[in-house]
Structure formats: structure tokens, C-alpha cells
Design a protein around this nucleic acid. Structure first.
Lengths: 137, 137
DNA sequence: ATAGTTGCAAAGGCTTTGCACCGCG
DNA sequence: CGCGGTGCAAAGCCTTTGCAACTAT
């Protein structure tokens, strides 16, 4: 928790109770939650929190590069605590997003131009049926 | 146009005028349009068309594997006529999506399992500032 | 006739905006 | 005080749904 506060200080984000709670949740549970999942989870600790604050907070975090937004479902955005760059697997049945630690050659640091375009983010993901859902059949 | 009709016949999709117009547009202009862009474009040829029909049609095409849906902007879905698998580059400034023909090793045909999950689609994309927007500064 | 297609209108879901209140420096 | 943060309510945008009219066998 102390380190998270320091992290917010470094990024010049006022470490309010709401923001710290949300950051802690994202850091501890890497389940790529939706805004609503964050809201429901935090509500147990901070019953007065509003969805607006959740949105305000994740936008602030995005802006400061603390988290990344995943839009791979096409429905609700999912939020991912930033660590080393990695890929994702989205299960089309249960909606779970798994981290996939594969080093794609195009993800090498330093290679930041593609066809004359300046690359700022690289995203890779798979869609399919996950291990668990395969077993259930 | 003849081949597009045949394409729909093969997929057991009734080749109505609306559907053919939309498929033709998607096949000729690979600009990854939104539903609204399709609507506005087709409206010039088929003034009575509705947004509902555009949605009905792209969903039918998706179901039959004629097109793919891109959700990389997090806002409106974009539609992509299906060709060989390729990657994309999204410009965060102008919103243009460029095709990037790179063979990512993980996209090799045959490799259809990852960490025990069954892979059905592989997506890769870059985000950044495109060539054109770079020049404007 | 019959099944499928079309398109208007309304509803739905996620996100953003407007604004008043609050709290901390 | 004053500025930023919070949260309620409302609006906004994209998409889906309900349903009636239509079309082509």
C-alpha cells in the first residue's frame, strides 16, 4: 500500500482514499475488470463511491500510464494494471481475459516505427475458447 | 459484382440489393468503416436504407465469416472485409486504421493452441501517430 | 401462403457531462 | 478562501430489440 501511494505521488496524482483503493484492487487482482466490476468491488470498502469516480479515476490512471485499457470485447472496456508488455487471450464463452506472456518480435523495445507510422502501443490478443470452458464440454 | 453475388450464395445469404451494396462497398473500399460510415455511404445509392439494416447485415456477414469486426478504438466498431490475416495500425489523432501486412510468427496456421486455450482468432495492432499526422506537425 | 427481410420507433447499456457539494491545504 | 475531488442526475452515443409492413418465391 505504501508503494502504491508513492507511485501516485510520483505521477502527481493526489492519493485519495478512493484512488488508492482502486489502484490497490487493480494491482492485486489482475483479472482485467470492467468499470462496473471495480465499482462493485470498491463499494464494499467505500460504500459511498460512485461510478463517476471510478471513471474519473481510471481516466486519470490511463493518462498517467498506470493502467491500460483493453477494448477487445467490443462491449465494456477492461482495465489492466501496467506491467511488462504482454498479450491476452479472450474466452468467447465465459469472457475471461488471460495474460499470455509471449515475446512477439514486433514488441521489441526500440522498434518504434512501422511503415512510417510512429508506434506508441502494441497490442496482441487471441480469441477462442479457454481451457476451463473446453473441459466443461 | 457477379462474384459478390456468388459469394453470398455460397454462404447461404440471400443476395438482396441492400446486402450486395454493403458487401460491394466493404470489398472495394478497405477503409475499415463504422456502421455509420456504411450507412451514410449506402444511403446515396439506397436512400431508404436504415441503420437497422446495416446492423442486421454486418451481423449476418460476421456470422458467415465474410467480414471481421475491429474493436480497437473502444468506441464504434469498425468492419473489415476478410482477406488474409493481417495486422492494423490505429492513428490516435485522425482515427484512420491502416492495414499492416506483417507475418507474426504466432499467426502461423496450424498453431491453434496457446497455453491450453483453443485459438480461433489472432489480432494484432499498433496504436500511435500515423505518417500523415506526423507530417502535419 | 410462408419464410425471410426491411426499417421505424423505442429501449438498452456503457460512458460522459453538468453541476453542486465537500474537504483539505 | 480556493482548488481539486467526489458523486448525483441527466444526457449522449452506439447498438439492440420489438414489431409491423413488405417482398419474393
Amino acid at each position: 500500500m505504501k508503494e502504491l501511494k508513492k507511485l501516485l505521488d510520483e505521477k502527481e496524482v493526489k492519493p485519495t482514499f478512493q484512488r488508492l483503493s482502486i489502484l490497490k484492487y487493480l494491482e492485486e487482482n489482475r483479472e482485467h475488470p470492467t468499470a462496473d466490476m471495480i465499482y462493485e468491488y470498491i463499494r464494499e470498502k467505500v460504500p459511498t463511491i460512485s461510478k463517476t469516480t471510478v471513471y474519473n479515476t481510471v481516466h486519470k490512471f490511463l493518462e498517467k500510464g498506470l493502467i491500460k485499457e483493453l477494448t477487445i470485447t467490443g462491449q465494456e472496456a477492461r482495465y489492466d494494471f501496467v506491467t511488462d508488455s504482454h498479450h491476452h487471450f479472450l474466452c468467447e464463452k465465459c469472457g475471461t481475459i488471460y495474460d499470455i506472456d509471449i515475446n512477439c518480435p514486433h514488441g521489441l523495445p526500440g522498434q518504434n516505427m512501422v511503415r512510417g507510422h510512429k508506434v506508441e502501443e502494441i497490442h496482441g490478443y487471441f480469441k477462442g475458447i479457454c481451457k476451463n470452458c473446453l473441459q466443461k464440454n
